[in-house]
């Protein structure tokens, strides 16, 4: 039954490469999150305050991002755009796919956050002499940030996990690199086991950092 010999040496030998690829994973996830937060904020504000074609565009974006598989979205940026003669590099495919997805999910979180702040607060701050910009940046945003802090952390974790789909569009981040090595040495189980551990550590580091940051940010 147990006549399989584990060979960990090739994995250990390529561990530096895997760790480097893990940095690439983190990089693309962080970039996608930054873009996703900015776009998600815009989408949420559009959905709350605007009418017409912009609203339609934002709603379509959000619903498409939330109701189709992330892998489908990646394929769409990877192969679908090829129909229009647009061929992106694997890095761009993953970055755009992740950004599209994160922006859609975050937009809904932001919308919920904005809706949780009662209108009366804006009116109160306006009547205290603040202009709309001041009311938003000083009264609304800090409160919304508290509400969406936890969802943002979760989304960051999802972004890291989702970036593993890059493997299927030829992106050599942590998963892609693992598959590359695994198919060269046929030590598939060993390689993917180590990669699973690396992902686990990354996720725990993100959650730990976020918790640490939260105690600093939300002391009051």
């Amino acid at each position: 039954m147990f006549d399989y010999n584990f060979h960990w040496r090739p994995v250990m030998k390529s561990l530096p490469d895997l760790l480097e690829a893990a940095l690439l994973t983190l990089q693309v996830a962080v970039l996608a999150m930054i873009l996703g937060i900015v776009i998600g904020l815009c989408l949420a504000l559009i959905r709350l305050h605007m009418r017409g074609p912009l609203l339609w565009l934002a709603s379509t974006w959000v619903e498409l991002a939330r109701n189709t598989p992330a892998l489908f979205q990646l394929f769409f940026f990877g192969f679908g755009l090829g129909s229009f003669g647009l061929h992106l590099s694997p890095y761009m495919i993953v970055l755009m796919g992740l950004t599209f997805n994160c922006a859609g999910y975050l937009a809904e979180n932001f919308r919920g956050g904005f809706q949780a702040i009662p209108d009366t607060q804006i009116r109160a701050s306006r009547s205290l002499g603040m202009n709309a910009w001041q009311a938003y940046t000083r009264i609304v945003i800090p409160q919304v940030f508290r509400i969406v802090y936890h969802p943002i952390t979760n989304q960051m974790v999802w972004a890291v996990l989702m970036s593993s789909l890059g493997m299927l569009v030829g992106f050599r981040e942590l998963s892609g690199e693992t598959q590359f090595f695994a198919s060269r040495t046929f030590r598939i189980f060993e390689y993917f086991a180590v990669t699973a551990v690396i992902y686990y550590v990354i996720v725990k580091l993100i959650l730990g950092a976020s918790r640490l940051l939260a105690t600093r940010l939300f002391r009051y």
């Binding site: 593993s164 998963s175 699973a196 992902y199």
Partner: peptide
């Protein structure tokens, strides 16, 4: 929940 589904 902490390891990508595809890796699992």
């Amino acid at each position: 929940r902490s390891v990508p589904l595809i890796i699992q």
